[in-house]
């Protein structure tokens, strides 16, 4: 597993912790939503950054009031065809105003990379580590977009108005 951020493979400072595993006290840790609900006070009492991971049937409304506690929200793609997290990412960014890291985890493939990027994901846990160029190409091979989303690509209608 490798992490892509800002167009490069980077070291992942975060540890994803299972629901019954011990949470490291001094390292950035990502916990599941159930764990967050169960151990909220202990997790907040730690002195290290905290992230939360939502499965594809856990919409971000569940954590809307707690977003200030999280530096990372990881959204799961249990398989690439389960597209719920695209909506969740946009809601996080555009409805709940979340500005921390939104991380795509699970079945994250380069054929969906552009869509994820457009919906507001900015970190990607991937298994295909062959070449970062392939991933960058996936972001640039289609240069026209028709709809506004959570990215800053200007949609065609906006560009038409400007010309």
């Amino acid at each position: 597993m490798a992490l892509i951020k800002d167009g490069a493979f980077v070291d992942d400072a975060w540890t994803t912790v299972g629901d019954d595993d011990p949470v490291p006290g001094d390292q950035p840790a990502i916990v599941g939503f159930e764990r967050w609900q169960r151990d909220r006070d202990q997790l907040l009492a730690r002195g290290a950054p905290l992230g939360v991971r939502l499965s594809s049937d856990q919409p971000p409304a569940l954590i809307a009031d707690d977003l200030g506690h999280f530096d990372v929200v990881a959204l799961e793609f249990p398989r690439f065809g389960d597209g719920r997290a695209y909506s969740y990412a946009r809601l996080l960014r555009q409805r709940h105003g979340y500005t921390g890291e939104v991380r795509a985890v699970g079945d994250v493939l380069r054929d969906q990379f552009l869509f994820m990027h457009r919906c507001g994901f900015d970190a990607f846990e991937v298994t295909d580590q062959t070449e970062i160029g392939h991933w960058q190409q996936a972001l640039s091979e289609i240069s026209v977009v028709y709809q506004p989303a959570a990215d800053d690509r200007p949609p065609a209608p906006t560009q038409r108005a400007a010309t």
């Binding site: 065809g81 597209g83 946009r90 869509f115 919906c119 977009v145 028709y146 709809q147 989303a149 065609a156």
Partner: peptide, 13 residues
């Protein structure tokens, strides 16, 4: 047609 083409949020319904 244009809005629904390669819609980033709704390509995996």
């Amino acid at each position: 047609r244009q809005w629904s083409t390669l819609h980033p949020e709704f390509s995996f319904l």
